[in-house]
Design a binder for these strands. Sequence first.
DNA 1: GTCTATAGCGCGATAGAC
DNA 2: GTCTATCGCGCTATAGAC
Lengths: 193, 193
Amino acid sequence: MNEPSHTRTRILDTAQDLVQRIGANAMSYQHISEAVGIRKASIHHHFPKKEDLLEALIQRYSGQFFTWLDGIARAKVAAPVKLQRYIALFEATLREGKHDRACPIGMLGAELASLGTASAALVQLFRKKNEGFLTGVLQQGLKDGQFNFSGDHRATAALIFALLEGEMLVARGAAGVKDFSKVAKQMLRLLQR
Amino acid sequence: MNEPSHTRTRILDTAQDLVQRIGANAMSYQHISEAVGIRKASIHHHFPKKEDLLEALIQRYSGQFFTWLDGIARAKVAAPVKLQRYIALFEATLREGKHDRACPIGMLGAELASLGTASAALVQLFRKKNEGFLTGVLQQGLKDGQFNFSGDHRATAALIFALLEGEMLVARGAAGVKDFSKVAKQMLRLLQR
DNA sequence: GTCTATAGCGCGATAGAC
DNA sequence: GTCTATCGCGCTATAGAC
């Protein structure tokens, strides 16, 4: 099991940070070069095309995220607790670093038209997996009587995902982690009572 | 009362369409030039800097939108109907043209870090006005017993706005107007029962 | 108000030495 | 694996003729 080279990791870290703050279109090899302390040509050695870099970035983030999702799904806890843990994943992403960082996949979702087909497919997969996870949690909660609402589970799952991603993307600057948490809490409240 | 020149309007129309589909960073004077059938330099005559163009675009869209908001707010109808009309505003934006078009201000919100201070302020204003409108509708609905939920009105207003903007931004490609409407309907349901 | 022409820069990407 | 050097392109923006 080979560790990925340190430089490769630092490039991905920097690229992800840039995507979260300014988006993939505004991010450049020059930016990364300066932040990592390496020349542009060296970045091309690790990621020949920008599309390769974006694809790797999405793969890495999605992989981590899916692992966390699985952990939450398997846990023997009540559905509302699972939902709170899910929300905490987003809050952790939002909190890293001092700047306003959105979900990297959410940013790329907004820029979907500029992505290659491989990256675009991964972005769509991310959404599907998240909505699948949420659908499961909602079903469990309804069965156990912890949630109480009518209507389609899938639409409700899509609602939750869009809400959390949207709050990160659109509520930049003015809001912060605190406002994000407030909104997320209110969503939980609407599902329970 | 002078009509704005036809060319200026066509430039703004094209720019808005591009922002909705690919974002402000990916949009260029070259794109607009080809779509409008005019040279790049002529666009600079109407909008010297790109920032000027974006600012005008936001002003125009916000102005129309705020007028519609006022109309809905003043109407003598029940709160859920107002909310439905509000949702219809977003659906109309989504439906224009055949492509996946998000809310232009939502796109710019995601790209906030790339905007000038004037444009950024207008984007924030758009969110505040929307949340203010929604807060009013929610209060009316609670007073009249048409809505039934506990918790902060403002957080709920932010929730609705983030949800609608997020659904437009993140659910590109796979979803469409139909899925958008489903999710919006489900939100209404959660507020009422 | 639109045009041609061009400046000046940053971008992604490649070749080839070390 | 990192470097220097460079290519070719598209971008925003400006000058000046018509």
